[in-house]
């Protein structure tokens, strides 16, 4: 199988506060095309830190990160923007919808930066919202939507440019059980359609949807169920 993500000797140190925080310690990880991965671990174990790095948003790291064989550290700012835009769909823990902007417009944003023309953009945004079951809520503003609905808008937005990799940082963290399972069902479907899906979660039953569980503790991987079976 084709390897999508490879991380070697990844270290991340936050030096912003009075004390340095060593958030990731010598992490090595390989994820292949079409994998369905859960990342688990206690609060503060470095999950979000890893997701930000995987999402090409944080480059202040040591070690190396290859995305589809490309050395991310060697890419320019604009190239990174293009990768975030085209290759990666990111679902944030806190929804991160742009306020006072309709669901539709929020979904259109990645397509705007991809240069998709207005008409096509609207049509696709509509389709995506229908796909996540929000066809009737296109013109609602974020503050007019429930938590689950917001998260589904965020997912629709993450899928806008048909990314090969979907990164979701605690997508169900703010949702009740029913809504959480709906979203996981959706991710499962996407994975079956061929997308590489990586989900951060605290909950075992959410992780149970995936095919590989990686556990973090204090910035280190302590277990990885998929290491043997899915080696590339």
């Amino acid at each position: 199988m084709k390897e999508v993500i490879r991380i070697e000797h990844l270290n991340k140190v936050y030096a912003t506060g009075a004390v340095e925080v060593h958030a990731l310690k010598d992490v090595n990880l390989t994820i292949c095309e079409g994998e369905y991965v859960a990342i688990m671990g206690q609060s503060g174990s470095g999950k979000s830190t890893l997701m930000n790095i995987l999402g090409c948003m944080d480059r202040k790291i040591s070690g190396s990160y290859y995305l589809e064989g490309i050395d991310v550290a060697k890419q320019g700012e604009n190239e990174l923007s293009r990768i975030r835009n085209q290759k990666i769909g990111f679902v944030f823990q806190a929804f991160q919808l742009i306020p006072r902007t309709s669901a539709m417009k929020n979904v259109e944003i990645p397509m705007i930066y991809a240069g998709v023309s207005g008409e096509k953009r609207k049509k696709r945004a509509q389709q995506l919202l229908e796909k996540v079951g929000l066809g009737a809520r296109c013109h609602h503003l974020p503050n007019e939507l429930s938590g689950g609905q917001k998260q589904r808008v965020a997912i629709a937005r993450a899928l806008a440019n048909d990314p090969a990799i979907l990164l979701a940082d605690e997508p169900t963290g703010n949702l009740d059980t029913a809504a959480s399972h709906e979203i996981m069902d959706f991710f499962t479907k996407l994975n079956e359609e061929g997308a590489t899906v990586i989900v951060v979660t605290h909950e075992e039953d959410i992780a149970a949807y995936t095919k590989r569980i990686i556990r973090f503790q204090d910035g280190c991987i302590i277990s990885d169920t998929g290491r043997r079976e899915t080696l590339c």
């Binding site: 604009n78 923007s81 835009n85 944030f92 991160q96 742009i98 944003i109 990645p110 991809a114």
Partner: peptide, 10 residues
């Protein structure tokens, strides 16, 4: 931040 994360260039 959101825009940049979604692919906006500088």
């Amino acid at each position: 931040g959101i825009r940049k994360a979604l692919g906006a260039r500088m």
